[in-house]
Amino acid sequence: MNAPMELARRHRLQWWEALPWIAALACFFAFPNYLAFGTQVLVTILFALSLDLVLGYAGIVTLGHAAFFGAGAYTVGMMAMHWGWNEPLSGLLAAALVAGAIGLASGLVLLRTQGLALLMLTLCTMALLEQAANMGAEWTGGFDGMPGLSFGKIFGLFGFDVLYYKSQYLYALATLLICFLAVRTLVYSSFGQSLTGIRENLLRMHAVGAPVRARQVIAYTISAALAGVAGALFAQANGYVNLAVLGLERSAGVLIVLILGGYGRLYGAFVGAIAYMLLEHLLAKAYPTAWQLGLGVTLIVVALFARNGVIGMFDALRRRFGGTRT
């Protein structure tokens, strides 16, 4: 096949891309008792997907992405708590706006730096928000957070029930689908190609006259908004917000999920979140220390030998044994 047709084909939606969504719907009917867990997985996928945009495509290494997840969660939490604003969809929108605004503001100043300084700055931004949430107890509930939040019905029809996650699951699934389509469109667009260019070779990107920093800031902002939506979903589905939504642990966690799945390849977020959370669900409660040890060793092995994650390993195998590239 000639190269232009191949390129156009790769960017078109493929039939198999419907499979994960069909599988997700099948899970809804097959495992009615695990919908709470399923909802957490969907939220994590969305969060990891947002990180993929900056880390996998724009090549910005950040340790502070939970800042935006937390900003989204606290936005809907505080709106519901203090203003009684508990309509879910507008809550998602508000969370996206707030997190996006923080992303834009911090991106404009942070992305002037790179390397270690950038890593530190993202870390400090997150720590700053965490401390602010801890300190402003009147607004945020401080250390205890905001338990027992209640949210309205979706379209005035489907209510959230913290015991049965039926509505939450479908709501999270629909939100994830919409966000995924947006991210997919973005990464396959010329803008997405130029982000990949920035990741692959910064020097060359400058030399072709691309406005490198503006592109990075835009990507950072969009990614922050998506992370905010993920955080808002988390708060709405579970009915609480606490400090854990914006700690180092959450930032490191989502980084691990994305890396294990494979970054810069859209579906890495899905594979990583499902694999990680299933294992965590099965092992972490029963054998917390062994889980931690296994996780640590896995990360070391991945860093040393499998730098492109699970999907990357399959890709490499397929390339070795012939066949085309996706």
Binding site: Y188, G192, Q193, S194, G197, E200, G209
Partner: peptide, 26 residues
């Protein structure tokens, strides 16, 4: 990236569509 994608990134910048977000590069 492929050779075509490499050259496309440069051409897209020159034609002013390097920041276009909605249409697939292909």
């Amino acid at each position: 990236l492929t050779v075509l994608e490499n050259v496309c990134i440069a051409v897209a910048e020159r034609m002013g569509v390097g920041g276009s977000m909605l249409r697939a590069a292909g």
